[in-house]
C-alpha cells in the first residue's frame, strides 16, 4: 500500500489480520458495509490464489486486497469490493464462474466477467487505441472503476516488472486509464497514475534508446526464464553510464558476450569441461 492510504490503518485487535486495513477504511467511508461478505470473498480468493506470488515476491492475494482497499477508499459498494477481491480468480485459478456466481451472486459474477471482457479488448492483437476507447466508453462504470483501481495498484508495484513492460504499462496508464479515471471523477487516482507513469517512463528511458533496444533484442538468444533478469540488469547499467558513447560501447560489448552467456546459463555446472 506504500503508505499512500490516507486513512492510517490501526493495528488489528489481537492477532494480525489481513483485512484490518480494509476494515478501518470501511469504518470511515462506508460504516454500513457488509464486512462479513467481503471477508468471505477475501477468504475464497486467498484460498484459490494460495501459492501464487506477485513479481515482488508477495503472496498474490495482496493484490486483490489492495485493489479492494483502493475502491473502499472511494466508497465502492459491497458487490464491487467482492468483485475486486475475486477479479483474477476466474482467469488465473481453477475457480469457475458458476461457483463464483453461486457463492456471491450474479451481480458480482457480472462485474468479474466485465473486467475479463475489458482485458480481452485491450489485449487483442491489431486493436488500436480508438477501438479500445470505444469499448471502454460502452463498458459499465463499476467495471471501469475496478479496472482503474487494478491498474493503480499495478503501477504502484510496477518496478518489479521488466523495463519494456514498465514502459508499456505507463503508456497505457496515460492513454487509457487516466482519462477513464478522470471521466469517473476519480481525481486523486488520475493524479497518482500520472505521477507514477511519468516517473516510471523517465526511470526506464534507456529501454527506448538505441543501445537499450539492442540489448533487449539480443536477450532473445538467452533462455526465456533468464531474459528478464539480464535485460533489467543491463538497462540498469546503461542508466549508470552518463555518456552516450559509453552506453553504446557497453551495449556492443555485452552483446558480444551473449553466445557464451547463453551457453553458461544453459549449462551452469559444466564450467570445467568447456574448452577455452
Amino acid at each position: 500500500m506504500n503508505g499512500r492510504t490516507q486513512i492510517q490503518p490501526r493495528p488489528a485487535a489481537g492477532q494480525d489480520d489481513a483485512l484490518a486495513g480494509l476494515r478501518e477504511v470501511l469504518r470511515v467511508t462506508r460504516p454500513g458495509a457488509d464486512v462479513e461478505l467481503i471477508r468471505r470473498a477475501y477468504d475464497v480468493a486467498a484460498s484459490w490464489h494460495q501459492g501464487q506470488t506477485r513479481r515482488s515476491g508477495d503472496p498474490y492475494i495482496t493484490h486483490p486486497l489492495a485493489v479492494a482497499t483502493i475502491l473502499a477508499e472511494l466508497g465502492a459498494d459491497d458487490q464491487m469490493l467482492c468483485a475486486a477481491m475475486l477479479h483474477d480468480t476466474i482467469e488465473d485459478t481453477p475457480y469457475t464462474l458458476a461457483a463464483l456466481s453461486g457463492q456471491f451472486g450474479a451481480e458480482v459474477a457480472a462485474l468479474v466477467v466485465g473486467t475479463i471482457a475489458l482485458d480481452q479488448v485491450k489485449g487483442g492483437r491489431g486493436r488500436n487505441l480508438s477501438q479500445v476507447l470505444a469499448a471502454v466508453r460502452s463498458a459499465d462504470t463499476r467495471v471501469l472503476a475496478i479496472k482503474v483501481a487494478d491498474r493503480l495498484h499495478n503501477m504502484r508495484t510496477v518496478e518489479f516488472t521488466p523495463p519494456a513492460k514498465q514502459l508499456r504499462k505507463s503508456r497505457e496508464s496515460l492513454d487509457i486509464f487516466a482519462p477513464v479515471a478522470s471521466q469517473l471523477s476519480m481525481d486523486t487516482i488520475v493524479a497518482e497514475l500520472e505521477t507514477l507513469a511519468y516517473a516510471t517512463m523517465k526511470r526506464n528511458r534507456h529501454a527506448r534508446s538505441v543501445s537499450g533496444r539492442l540489448l533487449i533484442a539480443v536477450t532473445a538468444l538467452l533462455p526465456v526464464a533468464t531474459r528478464t533478469r539480464w535485460c533489467e540488469e543491463w538497462l540498469g547499467e546503461l542508466h549508470t553510464l552518463a555518456a552516450r558513447r559509453d552506453r553504446a560501447s557497453f551495449a556492443v560489448h555485452t552483446m558480444l558476450g551473449i553466445p557464451r552467456l547463453a551457453y553458461t546459463v544453459r549449462n551452469p555446472a559444466r564450467g570445467r569441461r568447456r574448452a577455452g
Partner: peptide, 14 residues
Amino acid sequence: EPGTLYPVMARLEG
C-alpha cells in the same frame, strides 16, 4: 569488458 564479465558472473553464480 562486459561481454567477458557477465558470462563469468553467470558461471560463478551457477
